[in-house]
Amino acid sequence: MVIFATDHGKPIYLQLAEWLEKEILSGNIAADERIYSQYQLAEMFNINPATAARGLNILVDEEILYKKRGLGMFLSPGAVAMIKKRRRKQNLERLVRELVEEARLLNISRAELGELIRGAHRGEKGEKQ
């Protein structure tokens, strides 16, 4: 029988694009600052530079990065806002939908769900004592 972990089949260039987004979101790269080159990324993650380039190009296509000929790729001034907006749409809204569906299945009221979320915000454990 074959069982696949959900993440281990994920293409490396997508994982790399996500990692770069996290770096940008956490403020490690400033606006108009040069981002890692494909060769630096290849060395850091032990991957082929062509794969690294593919990861970078995802962010170029989304205009999170811009290219300067011969100089490399740089962070667009509006990058953080763009990433947040897309992630909100792609990730957060989907997660909330799944959360609400699961709560419905378990007959958890809106108030209880709200309390769970507030608890998670405060850093409490999900399980009740």
Partner: peptide, 12 residues
């Protein structure tokens, strides 16, 4: 094919 495309080439 390009190595980066292999993981998306097929699905189960």
């Amino acid at each position: 094919l390009s190595a980066s495309a292999l993981r998306e080439y097929a699905l189960g």
